[in-house]
Design a protein around this nucleic acid. Structure first.
Lengths: 254, 254
DNA sequence: AAGTCGATATCGCCA
DNA sequence: TGGCGATGTCGACTT
């Protein structure tokens, strides 16, 4: 006989006593719910670095995959967090709700101590999570492979992610003269770091190929900064202005 | 005459009608509250890239600084978001709660359409926000400046953030022989990118200084990957193993 | 488990 | 405001 148990969609408590908040959070985590607790708390972290955060009112989210987020009223990023696959422990210590999250490799521990809880909620969520994203570097690569002349008339792509001792080259190919060409793609305006990356690949490939073989390096991006342009020139590297396609462009290609 | 208005600490609705959810969210935003809405929704984004996300149950957070976050039940990162300083608009369209967030420079628009709302809350939060963090690259720099012999016996730091045509050098100094030394600091194990960064600085400084002047490059980090070690060797660069101090070490220094 | 690199990276600092 | 680099970056993919 099977007990038909309806998934608990929502449990919520307003200004709960620490023991009641603890029970809701524990049962929510056990049930695979996304749990939130809002209230005045302090946060201590120790792991890859160390941090302490004095008392203040914050929004705490515990996800069923083991992630934890502490958000203040400002900023896109959480002020403290734990990544997915952490173990959450919830308890009441000295009359205060204590939420701890821990993982190994690397060893990291987060402790959130609540002076008071304004609201605690447990949400049973289901999500297909089918995000469709366009305008990435991969889209730019497909654009280049579809029409290599956008890089340069007569350019012939031979491989993507071609490995070198310095890392994998985005697009490797030959120009109309048969010279080796390393293409580094960036979806947005680039600075000196991208030039360094391209330069590394060109150097590594020049060592790998026979010495007499010339290797050209081409940075493909919407634009470059002044400093990046100078570095490109110093190293004999080239730049081609190209943006990742918009969704409409991709559709039109079909 | 001043009306003494107590800050609304918490307003919350369970399974509200779209109109009621809309009112709560609008008034919450106007009051400078952190607003959350949990429910089944679809999300469309257009800006630096483009994305669509089909229906699913998610947690939406609107911060008083203009940030917006859409969290699924998985992952540390939001599936969609807007950065701070965006303008939020809330309305009911075709009987559905619609939350929009927009900014210019760059032009970005986020639209969240709710099929249903499980819970909507507005939290009036106050936070001193005094995060203390240790174990950063800055801590590592202070450790090196306090005891330059940790880099090498006789090393003399002359400047931090010394500018070069390729960017600013973390620590610039001289070795016991009077040779110029570029030190690049990293708080954690490094890969090829850090070698490229150091290499750029050394090249740029060698150009800037008189040609006969030798410029050494030293990467200071806890450890390096194999590939990074090979790249260092190829370019005649050096590595010194050093970690950022823990909080206890910093205290002991005082 | 570790290496490598992209990201709507975000964030802070400085010119 | 844009450039530049750090981040407890995260996340995906490969080895």
């Amino acid at each position: 006989m099977t007990e038909r148990e309806e998934t608990v969609r929502l449990r919520s408590l307003t200004r709960p006593a620490p023991e009641d908040a603890c029970e809701l959070v524990v049962e929510g985590i056990d049930a695979g719910a996304l749990v939130t607790a809002v209230g005045r708390c302090s946060v201590d972290y120790e792991g890859r670095a160390e941090s302490t955060l004095g008392p203040g009112e914050r929004h705490v989210m515990l996800k069923p995959d083991g992630a934890a987020l502490v958000h203040t009223d400002e900023g896109q990023q959480p002020v403290n967090w734990q990544p997915p696959d952490c173990d959450h422990e919830v308890s009441v210590v000295d009359g205060q709700l204590l939420v701890e999250s821990h993982r190994e490799t690397p060893a990291e521990h987060l402790a959130i101590t609540f002076e008071s809880v304004l609201q605690a909620s447990a949400f049973g969520l289901t999500d297909e999570r089918d995000l469709s994203l366009a305008g990435t570097e991969e889209d730019l690569r497909e654009r280049v492979l579809d029409d290599p002349d956008l890089v340069e008339t007569g350019f012939s792509p031979l491989a993507t992610e071609r490995s070198t001792p310095a890392g994998a080259v985005d697009v490797y190919g030959e120009d109309r003269e048969g010279r080796a060409v390393v293409v580094e793609l960036k979806r947005r305006r680039v600075g000196p770091d991208a030039v360094g990356q391209l330069s590394r690949y060109v150097d590594a490939l020049a060592r790998d190929l026979h010495a007499e073989r010339e290797v050209r390096g081409v940075l493909v991006a919407p634009s470059v900064t002044d400093r990046a342009r100078r570095l490109l020139a110093e190293r004999g590297l080239e730049f081609v202005s190209l943006k990742p396609p918009r969704k409409d462009d991709i559709d039109a290609d079909g």
